[in-house]
Design a protein around this nucleic acid. Structure first.
Lengths: 172, 172
DNA sequence: GATGAAAGCAGGGCGCT
DNA sequence: AGCGCCCTGCTTTCATC
């Protein structure tokens, strides 16, 4: 199901523009790309249907809404079994402080990106929501000095299909 | 400059709705919140000007555009000095594979979230862009099994100002 | 600062090429 | 599939309170 979708240069151009500003109008897109507005509408609808475009997200500045301190929490869950990680995942996802949440390979099972008001809130979060849980074996807190969102996520090379991996290492 | 902004209940309600769906029309917002559409427009424009709203971002599915493998790279930069980290940061930010990038406290100086086509590309990325750099002392690669975007980022409690930290621990 | 009415303009359907 | 017309309804302005 998460299969790669073929994107032609028009799709790529549209996606690139929309990633700069997701509210660009179809008329503007059309003017930039060199097709008719209705064609843009068509393309975007198709990209949406095929699952390439997941949605539009409002980006807020955490610091401006009283969440000036961000951190990454590396969490070990032991034993690392489905019965335990299900509730853990649901709880962490639901925390208002959670921004993103990863299940990983390596010594730490999860990485949680949190945004809080200050050190006291971070301490409360770690103690009340993590170390107090029986299945949480270890939490390592790393403060974020600075962060960057990187350039538009676009296909490997101009409209190319996924360059596939070497023999013996099939992609997921 | 990254100062907290006072948000009244109307602002909060609008932000909450826009985070569920960034394309909610001003008419709908107005109906929900209980003010006139033009007032919503006003509020949103003000939130944008004051820096609370950073922008609208299109969310794409990496797997559908030939980036089915994601990983977090923990990177040590030694010596950890401005002259070296400037160019490093710029280079990593510019990589098309980079999705997000953090400067951290703790044993690893940076964390880079990357999306690639498959293991071969990840290997190439690590070898050519990280371990080949003189200032990169160590890279630890952690694959991402699964990830979640967490709930709407909103102020700590209903319109409250940032509950401040304990004495001796001023927030940034 | 909030409002309602009025004008301008974008979104989306449809038939044609 | 791409295009252009057209209508609907949203966005945005402005005078007014």
């Amino acid at each position: 199901m998460p299969d790669s979708v073929a994107l032609d240069p028009v799709d790529l151009h549209i996606l690139r523009l929309l990633q700069n500003d997701a509210r660009t109008t179809y008329r503007e897109l059309a003017a930039e790309v060199g097709v008719a507005p209705s064609t843009c509408l068509d393309r975007v609808a198709r990209l949406r249907r095929s699952g390439v475009i997941l949605g539009h997200r409002l980006r807020l500045d955490p610091a401006r809404i009283g969440r000036g301190l961000e951190a990454l929490l590396l969490v070990q869950v032991r034993p690392h079994r489905r019965e335990l990680i299900g509730p853990f995942v649901e709880r962490i996802r639901a925390l208002p402080e959670s921004r993103a949440f990863f299940h990983l390979t390596g010594p730490d099972d999860y990485l949680v990106h949190v945004a809080v008001a200050g050190p006291a809130d971070l301490q409360r979060l770690v103690l009340d929501e993590f170390t107090s849980r029986r299945e949480v074996a270890r939490v390592e807190t790393r403060l974020i000095f600075q962060q960057w969102e990187c350039g538009p996520l676009l296909p490997p090379s101009e409209g190319a299909r996924a360059p596939e991996s070497q023999p013996g290492s099939p992609a997921p």
